[in-house]
Amino acid sequence: MDGSSAPGPVAGDFLTLLKQRRIISDIPHGLTNHSGLTETVATTILGFKFADGVLVAGDRRATAGNVVMYDRADKVLEIDRHSVMAIAGSPATAWEMARILEHSFQFYRRSQLQEMSVEGKVRSLSKLLRDNLGMVMQGLGVVVPLFAIYDKKNPDPAKLFFYDAMGAQFEATDFASSGSGAAAVRSVLYYEQNWGVSPLRERSREDAILLALKALDTAAEADTATGGIDRHGKIFPIIKTVSAAGIATVSDDKLSELFQAHVA
């Protein structure tokens, strides 16, 4: 019973609580990766703004060197009712970060009796990435995420952020991508934004989903680490949209239908 214990440097900070109780430990410094361990990494993710809000998508492949570790990885993670994090890099670290974030936002809301601000949430992820710097310097556990949030109170409610591995946060105006297939995805989105039928922000949900499928398929064409769309195993990317109504996941049936009709 130490609910009375003096609040940490920042009231309502779940991370401080975890560290105080030694539930998560600080990352050891000074180690180098001589173990010959081939790290599992997850690849291509993308996000862009469309008419209703933000769309976030990720392929399903996780690789370790040239081995496909897992072809059904979920890289697009719901953090709370209006925010989504997508991960590229080490799933071991990224899934843990997502869990910490989810618990941090809820812990803050419950203990402080108010919702954390959008800026606060975006900073929280930045802080986790910075805390991970020791690992990054050792060449392991690198995570380069995207973070999408819908802020009802803001006149410009759809927000999309991307980060570098050290925790710098950048707000994307229209689109962002990360992971090994990012360059291809970025080219597709840039082209569509400037010379496509209409700017991304004016596209309907269905058009946005279709574009995400095409962009991931393009990435998979040249990058073996990107799973793309598995026509035989019926493995489709994970696509989520964040809008005023909350988060919606596009069903595999819907993806299959769109894919058959417009992409295949």
Binding site: M1, D2, G3, S4, F14, L17, L18, R21, I23, R99, I100, H103, Q106, F107, R110, S111
Partner: peptide, 18 residues
């Protein structure tokens, strides 16, 4: 009440996380 409330939130939160 506040002390008990915080204890409950911390206990539940850390259990739910670990």
């Amino acid at each position: 009440i506040e002390r008990l409330r915080m204890t409950a939130i911390e206990l539940a939160g850390t259990e739910g996380f670990t």
